[in-house]
Simulated assay, not measured.
Amino acid sequence: MSSAVAESEPLLTPDLLARLERLELVSRKVFRGNIKGERRSRRKGQSVEFADFRNYVPGDDLRLIDWNLYARLDQLFLKLFQEEEDLHFYALVDCSGSMEFGKPSKLRVAKQLAAALGYIGLCRADRVCVSALGPPGRSAPVLRGRSNLWRMLQYLESVDGGHNVTLHDGVKDFSIRHSGSGICVLITDMMDKTGYESALRMLVGRRMDVFVMHVLSPEELDPPLRGDRRLIDIEDGDQTEITINSFVLERYRETVHAFIDGVKSFCSRRSIAYIPVATETPVDVVVTNYLRKRGVVR
């Protein structure tokens, strides 16, 4: 399949949509939702599903006392029910110039991943916001319910690359516009000359459950280049001339792997889940298999 055809196809196929409906986003933290939803909470509340008993305390609602148990034990117990709550889910898509590289492009894969995870959240009545880290001021809608799938896909299809906003500025703009806590998945290639550290610290500081999906293309891991080349930075236009031979390629691979290991280490020290994603891997395999093993969905 040619890259042009792949880029023009829908972000989510009908078959993948059907498979996504059976999944659920997983949070490693407990968040207090704004309104009730379909997600089972670890907190006890009021619903039709019984959860547990606890001793009666003066001031408790008398309607929740189990009078049958009182008749048998001569003690007052309250019935507790499982509370259902909504969850905030945020998918942040890096739209910098470097994300346009590859076949399919890293940006295309990032949008597919955001769409897939967002749809899982919509199916579970979570509050979903899929946002591009592009020009400051571009607002993304907060959606709820699977009927809003078309709005989310319409927004993502309108997202283009080449917006060379730093990760720090993109996350800062997002944080100003969205104050809720919840699951936050940052989908990026981490290629920012100003660094990625401050952006991740900002998300962790908001007590988000943060996941980083590090998207890279095969050409970046093992460039198919030889001979005299002029390399041009796609984001700031910096140029350098270089002769590429086996020694240079080996040093390049070592540098790339050191960079990846550095990102992994930084994330691990801050309880950020790090998930590498290769653009040649089909999105349905990444979401329904790989992310399930990593605990992002179940």
Rank of each mutant, 00 (worst) to 15 (best):
L16C: 03
E38S: 08
V159P: 01
P135V: 08
D94N: 04
S41D: 01
G182K: 04
D261G: 06
Q75S: 11
A91N: 07
Y252G: 14
A51S: 14
R39W: 03
V93T: 10
Q46W: 01
G161H: 03
G45Y: 05
R206Q: 15
L156N: 08
L62D: 03
D52H: 08
P276G: 06
L23D: 02
E197Y: 00
L92K: 07
G262R: 10
R177D: 05
L11R: 00
A132H: 02
V296F: 02
Q112I: 06
G227K: 00
V286K: 03
L62I: 10
F247Q: 12
A278C: 11
N148R: 15
S98L: 06
H163K: 07
D228S: 11
R138C: 05
A18K: 08
F101N: 11
A91L: 09
D192A: 07
R22N: 06
F50H: 02
E7P: 00
L122G: 09
D228F: 12
G170R: 02
H257L: 12
F101L: 14
D15H: 05
D238L: 11
S198E: 15
E219A: 12
S2N: 14
R251G: 14
R230W: 01
D160L: 08
E250Q: 14
A125K: 07
Q82V: 13
R127W: 09
E219I: 04
L156S: 02
K106W: 11
D126K: 02
G121R: 05
L12F: 02
V248G: 06
R201D: 15
L153M: 07
V57T: 13
F174I: 04
R144G: 06
S47E: 10
S41H: 01
F77H: 14
I234T: 09
P276C: 06
Y90N: 10
D160T: 15
S139L: 09
V297T: 11
K103P: 00
I35T: 15
S147W: 04
G170I: 04
V165P: 03
R177K: 10
D66H: 06
D61T: 05
Y70L: 13
R270L: 14
D261C: 03
R40C: 03
F81A: 10
L216V: 15
G170F: 06
G195E: 06
D60H: 05
L64V: 12
V296M: 05
R127F: 14
M1K: 02
P14H: 01
V26F: 00
R207Y: 13
R54T: 06
L153F: 00
V142N: 01
V185D: 00
G205N: 10
S8V: 01
L221Q: 09
G205R: 01
A71F: 06
I275F: 12
H257Q: 13
T240N: 02
Y290I: 12
A71P: 00
L62F: 09
I275L: 15
G227W: 09
